[in-house]
């Protein structure tokens, strides 16, 4: 992804704020996403293949469609993971994501109500964790997946400390 200069009329302008360096997340997130995707696909594929071999080749559809979707996902996921980024500024946290549908969320530290750190069994094995910020607005979609646990912990502590320092009512 190129980093063009933010000028008016440049479609990427809102996503490349001046003077902000986004940190990317761990590439292990690709593995995590692909593994969980594969697990959900494996049952229909196996069942479809067995039925196709035993009964009629039409059953290949049942196996083929999920497999094709999975193949497409496998192409997109690495790009999605590369597009994920976050940046800590003095007063707010920026979270950027998306390839086709891009978004950038700005969460002021003073607005944070709490911070969640989550890691499932697969995530733990791969050594990644997910940090989620919550404000009083349910729409705030500030999730940073795929952080190394140490970084997740550091971020959590830092966000809490900054949130406390800047906390304002609602």
């Amino acid at each position: 992804m190129a980093t063009p200069q933010p000028t008016s009329g440049d479609p990427a302008a809102p996503f490349e704020p001046v003077g902000v360096d986004f940190r990317s997340v761990s590439p292990r997130l690709v593995t995590a996403r692909l593994v969980s995707g594969a697990v959900s696909v494996v049952v229909p594929v196996v069942v479809g293949a067995v039925l196709a071999l035993v009964f009629s080749p039409w059953w290949w559809i049942l196996a083929g469609v999920p497999a094709a979707i999975f193949a497409a996902t496998a192409v997109v996921v690495p790009r999605q993971v590369r597009a994920l980024g976050y940046a800590e500024r003095d007063d707010d946290l920026l979270v950027r994501k998306g390839v086709l549908f891009r978004s950038l969320v700005v969460v002021p530290y003073g607005r944070m109500q709490y911070v969640d750190v989550e890691a499932g069994p697969l995530d733990r094995r791969l050594g990644i964790a997910k940090v989620q910020l919550h404000t009083a607005a349910a729409a705030t979609d500030a999730v940073i997946p795929g952080l190394p646990p140490a970084e997740a912990e550091r971020l959590r502590d830092r966000l809490s400390a900054r949130g406390e320092a800047r906390l304002a009512g609602l």
Partner: peptide, 29 residues
């Protein structure tokens, strides 16, 4: 201004082609 919770910009593929974006202010439910 003091009631702003968080802010976001988002852009879909068509919006990207036209170099436009959607701006959202997150407010309480």
């Amino acid at each position: 201004h003091e009631r702003t919770q968080s802010l976001a910009v988002a852009q879909g593929p068509w919006q990207r082609r036209l170099a436009v974006a959607t701006f959202t202010v997150h407010s309480t439910a």
